[in-house]
Design a protein around this nucleic acid. Sequence first.
DNA 1: TCTGGAGGATTAGCGC
DNA 2: GCGCTAATCCTCCAGA
Lengths: 92, 92, 92, 92
Amino acid sequence: MATQPAPAAAGHNSAVDADDRLRLLVERVERLEGEKKGIQDDIKDAYAEGKLSGYDVKMMKFIVAARKIKPDDWREMQMLRETYCNALGLPW
Amino acid sequence: MATQPAPAAAGHNSAVDADDRLRLLVERVERLEGEKKGIQDDIKDAYAEGKLSGYDVKMMKFIVAARKIKPDDWREMQMLRETYCNALGLPW
Amino acid sequence: MATQPAPAAAGHNSAVDADDRLRLLVERVERLEGEKKGIQDDIKDAYAEGKLSGYDVKMMKFIVAARKIKPDDWREMQMLRETYCNALGLPW
Amino acid sequence: MATQPAPAAAGHNSAVDADDRLRLLVERVERLEGEKKGIQDDIKDAYAEGKLSGYDVKMMKFIVAARKIKPDDWREMQMLRETYCNALGLPW
DNA sequence: TCTGGAGGATTAGCGC
DNA sequence: GCGCTAATCCTCCAGA
């Protein structure tokens, strides 16, 4: 399994301190996860509003995704695709 | 791909207004996604710190997940597990 | 939780029969997973051989992925991307 | 994208040979991926049959996963879990 | 209910 | 050899 042994208190502290440390960590993660869920809901709201304005959700997501790809990369992808497909005698 | 055509501007506005509306929406989503990524990184940091303190990341994640489950549900799940494990003669 | 009750033997059979049924199912899955792992290893081998022949693994994977996209879909994606990016005054 | 340029044919062969080699490789991968998909579908079918027999899919998957773990490792994991849960006062 | 997409967990490849 | 990063695989959930 190769998991660590139960954490001995780092240094001279007692087990209680170590437990508190763990608890703090866990609660911090839980708080962050809560914030994350809030953001996710906001994103969902944004798409919902867009939908009410007549936009297609799928399309909006496509735009957001497409804007993440740098145009140079896009061109290169296209060229590579064509180059290799030609080289392989693509059936298209 | 089967995505819908671009939406005509809802109502009486011009195409420019519709574009602005779409732009605003997209930028809003992008901003929110950025915030979300920040939170995700924070969560990663939290686990990384825990690891440095000697905790096992897998176990921390288990704790966080377990705390989300109601005790009754947990008990029921445990019982089911035992039933299935016994049925197959698993040693636990 | 909403999980099913432990499976009573279907019909008139004994619990042992039900257990055998479960065991058979599990062993079947395990066998299939073994076969699947074999295939995965074969794929890995194929890429490894390609690498030894001087091909770039990433590139080979790109080709395999690209060939899965129908050219019509590819064209449509590209058109959509350009259309919407123009509409949004893309910085490119 | 930062992928390498197309490989020159290794050794003295012509570009056509290199293309053939690449084609063979790609088609081999595609064939293997097809077989793999078939196996995956078979696995899905197995679980679906189990469900029809009254078994809980989640539990079947748990069984399959559990059987992969050596008893000693399982014990160690259980102990670790208890340690962590006790540290945080989880009721199990 | 069922399918597609997002998220998380695992694993392979790589550098130290 | 181990830890890290990145890609893959699988699960879960929202949406149709």
